[in-house]
Amino acid sequence: MSESAVDGTAALSIVLFAGGFDRVHYALVMASAAAATNRKVTLFFTGRALRALVHEAEPGVLGWHDLDPADDGSTPVARDRYFATHGLATFEELLEACVALGVTVMACEMGLRALGLPPGVGLRADVPVATGGVVTFLNEAPKGGAMLFV
């Protein structure tokens, strides 16, 4: 293991507070790529981005379907379908990769309350999600690691 991996400078912490599909999708791209290169990665979901972690409201309709429209104005489902037909990783593929690669996924307690969801209730069962506040997130972020806001 490299010295930077040990001292935390190779770590990546991403705060997802915007709910646009393209922003959340690309944060998953960054997180999975960083984890694939042996970096410690934390995704901290808050605000409208938390929709990505909400379980199905009805069969086949995942929470990320309710994210804000993509940058080109298309719905999240249409944009994801475009990615799939053009050989790009889909939302579900990226989220599954993040889980498989050990990315830490945190849901902001304040953000959950703002959406009307009690901590840990209504979130996807297939994604291990820790709940915590900003202080928890900052205390767990490795010193010297990179932090991005999406």
Rank of each mutant, 00 (worst) to 15 (best):
D66T: 15
T85D: 15
R113A: 15
G132F: 11
V99C: 01
R81I: 08
Y82W: 14
T131H: 13
A107N: 09
D72V: 11
V127A: 07
P128V: 06
A49S: 15
C98E: 00
V129M: 10
L53F: 05
L123T: 03
D72L: 11
F44M: 08
A107V: 07
R81V: 11
G102L: 02
G116M: 06
H65Y: 13
F83W: 14
V99F: 03
D80Y: 06
L88I: 01
L43V: 04
L88N: 04
L95Q: 13
S74D: 11
D71Y: 12
L112R: 07
G87R: 14
G60Y: 03
G60I: 08
T42L: 02
Y82Q: 12
E93I: 00
L50I: 13
R39Y: 00
D68R: 07
F45Y: 08
A70L: 08
A52P: 07
R113N: 14
L53P: 00
F83D: 12
R79F: 01
T85M: 12
G111H: 11
F45I: 03
P59V: 09
V105N: 08
A125F: 00
F44S: 08
V129K: 12
W64F: 02
P119F: 02
F83Q: 08
T90V: 04
L67A: 06
G63L: 15
N38S: 12
H55C: 09
R124Y: 09
A84I: 07
G63K: 12
H65L: 10
E93G: 04
A84F: 03
L112D: 10
E92S: 11
E58A: 14
R79G: 05
T85W: 02
H65T: 13
R124E: 12
E56I: 10
F45S: 07
W64C: 01
A100M: 04
G73P: 10
V61T: 15
D126F: 00
A125R: 11
L112E: 14
L43D: 00
L94C: 04
D68M: 14
A57D: 11
T42H: 05
G47I: 01
K40Y: 01
